[in-house]
Design a protein around this nucleic acid. Structure first.
Lengths: 245, 245
DNA sequence: CAGTGGTCTAGACCACGCT
DNA sequence: GCGTGGTCTAGACCACTGG
C-alpha cells in the first residue's frame, strides 16, 4: 500500500504530464479537501514534485508547473580557435547566435591548486601554484555558467596578459597569443545536485541538477596547460558533441 | 534570519564536509535535543541533505553519509567499431576493463516513434515505424543503464538479425554487418531528476540526477540510421570525450 | 485585505533493523 | 524489544502576492 502523499503526488504528476495542469496547481487547501488529508501530507506530495523538477513554489502564489528552455552548447567547437575568429570570445559568439545578450565577469588569482586540479594538470603535490581565471558568464544580465580556468603558473608567468581581468579574449585566444596552443582536449562530464553556494550564485531552482563540464588541454608535447571547470544549471543547457568518422 | 531547519542543515553539512561525520549522523532524537526543536524541523533539515545527495536514509537505521564511486564512459570510442574487435560487445569490454561483471537484457519491438525520436531520425510524422532495441545494461547483476536504440524500420527490415533479442553483438556491429556503417555521430547530453519509473528501474538514490546521453548516427550520405538514448544514474558515472587537434 | 505558501510544534502510530 | 526512521494529524503563526 502506497503512502497517501505518494498517491497525491502521482495524481498530480499524471495531470501535469497529461497537460491538464499547465500553469498552476490547486491550492494546498483545495487538495486537503479533495484527498481528505492534513496539510502536512499535501505538502509532502508537493515537495516531492518540486524535488523532481516538475513544479516550482514561492510564498504567496500558487504552485506552478515548470517549463524550462535550454540553450545548446556544442562542446566540440567550444573555444577551438580554428572554429571562430580570434578576436571574438567564443562565449559571446555562441550566445549571440542563440539570440541573447552575453556578458562576462572575470577575476584572476594565483593560488595553490586543489587536489583535483593538481591531479588534472599533473602538478607535483607541493609548491606549484596555478593561475586561476574565474569567470561568471552572463546571459541577459543573469548568471548562467561558472567557468574557472587553471593554468600552471610556471607556464604562463611570463605572459602578463593572463593576469588581465578582461573578458574579451578567450583562453583559447590567450593560449595561442602566448604561443601555447592546445593540441588535444580531454573532456569529463558529471551531474550532481548543486551546493547551496552554487544554488545561490547560479539561481538554480529547487529540484534541478548541476552539470559539471571539465576540460583539460594539452600541448603538442603532452604537457597539460589548462584545466577548465564549467558549472551550469541543468535546466538551462544541453551539451552536444559532433564525432566525425 | 535563516529558518531553524536551514541552520541545522548547514551545521550538519559543515560537519560532513569537514569529515567530522563520515558514516552515520546523530539520530533525529539527539538532534532534537541539541537544537531544541521539534522532530519535524530536524526532519526538514535532513530531507534537505538527502535532496542534495549528501545523505541517505532508510527506515530502521541511522541517516548515513553517502559515498559514491563512479565508472567512467569514454563516449568518443563508445561503439565505434574501429576501437574494438567486432566480436566483443563494447559494453562488455568497457565493464570488464573496469573490473566488474557485465550483463545485458535485450527486448525488441516495432512501434510508431515518439515525437522526439521521429525528429532525431528525420522521419515523416505519419506512418513510419521504428525498430526499437531496448537494453538494460547490468553491472554485477545490478541495473546500471537503460539504452534504447531506434532504427528506421524501412532501413533494417531486410536484416532479421536486428530482431534477435541477443546482447552479444553491439549495434555498431549490427549496423556494420548490415552494410550500414555510421559515418558521423551527433551526441547530446542532458541532466534532470529521474521519474519514479526510472528511479525504480535503475535503483536511483534520492537526491541523485539522471544523465541522458542521446546519440544519433548518420550514414555516409547523411541519412540518420540510428538514435540511441542512454539513461544513467549520475552518481555512478562520468562521461569523457577526447578531442584531437 | 484575503488567500497563498513557509515554518514550526506536540503528539501519535507504524515499519524496519539490529541484538 | 528497543531504537531507528517513515507517515500523519490538528493547529498555530508568519511572510508574501495580488487585487
Amino acid at each position: 500500500m502506497n503512502a497517501k502523499w505518494e498517491t497525491i503526488a502521482e495524481h498530480l504528476r499524471n495531470r501535469i504530464t497529461n497537460g491538464e495542469y499547465t500553469l498552476e496547481l490547486p491550492s494546498e487547501n483545495t487538495l486537503m479537501g479533495e484527498h481528505r488529508v492534513s496539510r502536512t501530507t499535501v505538502r509532502r506530495a508537493l515537495s516531492q514534485l518540486v524535488a523532481e523538477g516538475l513544479v516550482e513554489s514561492s510564498q504567496g502564489s500558487p504552485h506552478r508547473v515548470r517549463a524550462d528552455e535550454r540553450m545548446r552548447w556544442a562542446m566540440h567547437e567550444w573555444e577551438r580557435p580554428e572554429r571562430h575568429s580570434t578576436s571574438a570570445d567564443a562565449w559571446d559568439t555562441a550566445v549571440l547566435a542563440q539570440g541573447a545578450t552575453p556578458g562576462t565577469i572575470v577575476t584572476v588569482a594565483i593560488e595553490p591548486p586543489s587536489e583535483a586540479v593538481a591531479h588534472a594538470l599533473h602538478l607535483h603535490p607541493v609548491g606549484e601554484l596555478v593561475l586561476i581565471r574565474r569567470r561568471v558568464r552572463l546571459i541577459d544580465e543573469e548568471p548562467h555558467q561558472l567557468g574557472d580556468s587553471y593554468f600552471p603558473y610556471g607556464m604562463v608567468k611570463d605572459h602578463p596578459e593572463f593576469m588581465e581581468p578582461r573578458g574579451l579574449s578567450a583562453p583559447g585566444g590567450l593560449l595561442i597569443a602566448a604561443g601555447l596552443p592546445q593540441a588535444r582536449l580531454h573532456d569529463l562530464i558529471e551531474a550532481r545536485m548543486p551546493t547551496p553556494d552554487e544554488t545561490r550564485l547560479l539561481r538554480i531552482p529547487l529540484g534541478t541538477p548541476l552539470i559539471v563540464h571539465s576540460r583539460t588541454g594539452y600541448l603538442e608535447d603532452g604537457t597539460a596547460i589548462r584545466h577548465m571547470i564549467t558549472r551550469m544549471s541543468a535546466n538551462r543547457v544541453e551539451i552536444t558533441y559532433e564525432i566525425p568518422a
